[in-house]
Simulated assay, not measured.
Amino acid sequence: MQNRIVHHLSHVDLDGYSCQLVMRYTPYTKYNYNANYGAEVKAKLEEILEKIQKSNESAFILISDLNLTADESKWLDHEVKKLNENKKDVKVQLLDHHGSGEESAKKYDWYFLDTTRCATKIVYDYVKENFSFDEPSWMEKFVNIVNAVDLWKQEEEENFEYGKVCMRLVTETRELNRVMFPIEDTEYKLALLHEAVKYIDEENAPIILDEKIHSLKKEFFKKENDNTLDNLATEYIVDLLGNAKAEKTIYYKGYKGYLSYGVGNTSIIGNGFLTKFPEYDFIVDISYRGTMSLRANNNVSVAQISKEWVDGGGHPNAAGGRIQGFKEQFRYDKVKIQLESIIAKKESVAGELEYKKI
């Protein structure tokens, strides 16, 4: 493992993120990715393979708490072999507990399946045996907590009850979008779990953690002054949007816009962004279903833009519409390609069109 870059793909629940929390205590350079079942798994694996292809460093692909279909396993095995034939030095290891992966586990030696342990416990035992591991004192107890709730072992009452609260801690961290901000979203969840372990040994630990969830979330987003969670998260997200301006700026007929994907809450976040970055004329957020929400700040009519793009409409500073035939994407760059294709077609058909300042 020495000098290998670890690309760790895991599930989007407590068990999946806890696998990555375990890996945090290994000394290797790591990149975390998270996916739900379905098309997102292969999309994330394609992203990992693209990064490895562009790198000259040895790589270790670790997949946890996700089972691959027979076709996905065959495809991944082929792609890794192809990289190694091109002298890329790539290893892959899948550690999972879902019985639906049995077919692949029988066929590929890199596919490890054990239905008696949760994925976090499998990763924990694997790390202790194979990696350098700076294990903190709370780790084994936390692993047993995740194991109790993920396998629904209600007889382990103490661990089970604390695990239920940890599960909710993860499922209710929706403030950040994991397509737009995958690194920050994963860090948010891992940071909250890292705080949660501090209360494991307290009397009435589940109740204490339950009562602290709101304050723990606020502490993650807080910079200096206290505020509501909504306002703290909005300020944090606006800063993230600002940091990514170079990648996410779009233009339409001379107007400067910003494209976000799945961020939601456009009235608050969109207007917050336009106030902080007045050089932008409008912002558009596209949902996973292709619904489009546009906001402006008196520089251009987004009602007119929406009408031209998707036959939508609304008010000069707030409008919306839907992209017909939109296909949900798990990567921002592919969403931007779809919208820029629409923009290019509209500009070529309509030519230059003067917008009247509001």
Rank of each mutant, 00 (worst) to 15 (best):
L45C: 06
E157Q: 09
N177A: 00
N227I: 00
M167W: 02
A43Y: 00
C118D: 09
I207H: 13
E57T: 05
E308V: 06
A43Q: 09
V146E: 07
R178E: 11
T115R: 11
S267D: 13
I323M: 14
Y236A: 02
I286L: 10
N130C: 02
G321E: 01
E184F: 14
Y280Q: 05
K356N: 13
N243Y: 05
K327E: 14
F112M: 10
A196C: 11
K87S: 09
S215F: 03
K82M: 15
H214L: 04
N297K: 08
L68D: 04
S18H: 02
K356D: 10
S260R: 01
G262Q: 06
H98D: 11
Y126N: 14
R331G: 00
E156C: 06
P27R: 12
I48M: 04
N36M: 03
L353I: 13
L232S: 03
G270Q: 09
Q154D: 14
F60V: 05
N3K: 14
D134S: 10
A318N: 02
P182C: 05
A246E: 13
Y188G: 00
H7C: 03
N317Y: 11
Q93E: 13
I268S: 05
S260C: 07
T186Y: 06
R24Q: 13
E50L: 09
D77P: 00
L94C: 02
K218N: 03
E203L: 09
G262T: 02
E135R: 12
E72R: 00
E328F: 00
I5C: 14
T120K: 12
D333R: 15
T173P: 01
N204I: 11
Y199C: 08
I200T: 12
S341M: 03
E347K: 04
H8G: 09
V146A: 06
K218T: 01
N177K: 00
C166F: 11
I250C: 13
I305W: 04
Q338E: 15
